[in-house]
Amino acid sequence: MVEIKPCEPSVLYNLLNRSGARLAEINYLCLIDARETQDYRTSHIITAKAVKTDSEGVFLLPEALEVDSMQHVVVYDSNTSSIQEDSRALLCARVLSEVSLSPVLVVIGGFQRFTALYTYLRTEKIMYTITELENLKQYPVEILSGLLYLGDEKQSADCSLLREMKISLIILLSQESMKGNQTIVNFPVDDSVKFDLYSSFERICDLIASHIDSGSRVLIASPRGRSRCSAVTIAFLMKHRKHTLQEAWSLVLGCKPDMRPNAGFLQQLEAWELHLTGRRETDISLL
């Protein structure tokens, strides 16, 4: 039996929005809706599967899903607030934990809290083709809940996505400029190990902080959403959330596993840590 862990809605949000059409991979995510069948049919979180119970109300393993091969197993009910209560989510999670090789995550606040935060990720659709899964809209990953997001240039240009997410400011790190309904601040940055991004850290980080401190939502974007935007996101967390380089790196990596500042940016982040704290606390060779 594997461990059952509580899971913030943002964790599930990021699992649903990792790049590379991950949802089309058959062993990527097992997302189970443990509510009553009629509730599931009315509306559920996108890609979630309903689960059945036997005549005694015991949860059955989901059909046609090899739970033991899944990288991520997540279950939710209406509004479970703790993994200490005998809720439908917990009862279902215990059954899943008997066969899963990955920890079983229970969404705290359940469907009600998740969909209050991410209304655009609820649906009535039950069946998906591989092609549909590959083409589901991907949203920027969430770094700070309800405040800071990291994404690519395509997402930063999608007006409907930005409206759904209520993004107020876009920090675009690209040689290509862009206009839109939201406030867009373009910083011409090359993804080159020789490019001096360090000199812009202070100005960009303070701009992000000024918007976040007022409750506005900020999207940091670069063409592929991997190197430039992750470097700036890490720099912001180091200055305005007082993280070490190691701590900020781990936080962003947990939200977006394919993020990777280039070697030049990584060295500049090391220098940024020295500037902020007066000492080198992180061995970048271990990152």
Rank of each mutant, 00 (worst) to 15 (best):
residue 2 V to A: 08
residue 3 E to V: 07
residue 3 E to I: 14
residue 9 P to H: 01
residue 10 S to T: 09
residue 10 S to A: 10
residue 17 N to D: 14
residue 26 I to C: 13
residue 28 Y to R: 03
residue 30 C to E: 06
residue 32 I to H: 00
residue 37 T to D: 10
residue 38 Q to A: 15
residue 43 S to T: 08
residue 43 S to G: 09
residue 46 I to T: 09
residue 52 K to I: 09
residue 55 S to M: 15
residue 58 V to A: 15
residue 59 F to Q: 03
residue 60 L to F: 05
residue 62 P to W: 08
residue 69 S to G: 06
residue 70 M to Y: 03
residue 71 Q to E: 11
residue 72 H to S: 06
residue 76 Y to S: 06
residue 77 D to A: 10
residue 80 T to C: 06
residue 80 T to L: 06
residue 81 S to V: 13
residue 81 S to K: 10
residue 84 Q to S: 07
residue 85 E to F: 04
residue 86 D to A: 14
residue 86 D to I: 08
residue 86 D to W: 11
residue 87 S to W: 08
residue 89 A to P: 07
residue 98 E to K: 12
residue 100 S to T: 14
residue 103 P to Q: 07
residue 104 V to D: 00
residue 104 V to N: 03
residue 108 I to D: 00
residue 108 I to F: 04
residue 111 F to V: 07
residue 112 Q to D: 14
residue 115 T to V: 13
residue 118 Y to K: 00
residue 122 R to E: 11
residue 125 K to A: 15
residue 125 K to H: 12
residue 129 T to Q: 09
residue 132 E to N: 15
residue 133 L to M: 13
residue 133 L to R: 03
residue 136 L to P: 03
residue 139 Y to S: 01
residue 143 I to E: 00
residue 148 L to Y: 01
residue 152 D to E: 02
residue 153 E to T: 07
residue 155 Q to P: 04
residue 157 A to Q: 02
residue 163 R to M: 15
residue 167 I to E: 02
residue 168 S to D: 10
residue 169 L to Y: 11
residue 180 G to M: 05
residue 181 N to D: 10
residue 182 Q to D: 12
residue 185 V to K: 05
residue 187 F to A: 12
residue 194 K to I: 12
residue 194 K to W: 13
residue 204 I to G: 03
residue 205 C to Y: 01
residue 205 C to G: 15
residue 208 I to K: 00
residue 209 A to N: 13
residue 210 S to V: 11
residue 210 S to F: 08
residue 212 I to M: 06
residue 216 S to R: 14
residue 218 V to L: 02
residue 219 L to Q: 04
residue 221 A to W: 08
residue 221 A to F: 03
residue 225 G to A: 09
residue 227 S to Q: 11
residue 228 R to W: 05
residue 231 A to L: 05
residue 231 A to W: 01
residue 233 T to I: 01
residue 234 I to D: 00
residue 234 I to H: 02
residue 234 I to Y: 04
residue 235 A to V: 07
residue 241 R to N: 13
residue 242 K to P: 03
residue 243 H to C: 15
residue 244 T to M: 12
residue 247 E to H: 08
residue 249 W to R: 02
residue 251 L to N: 07
residue 254 G to V: 00
residue 258 D to S: 10
residue 259 M to Y: 07
residue 263 A to T: 11
residue 266 L to H: 01
residue 267 Q to E: 14
residue 280 R to C: 14
residue 282 T to P: 01
residue 284 I to Y: 04
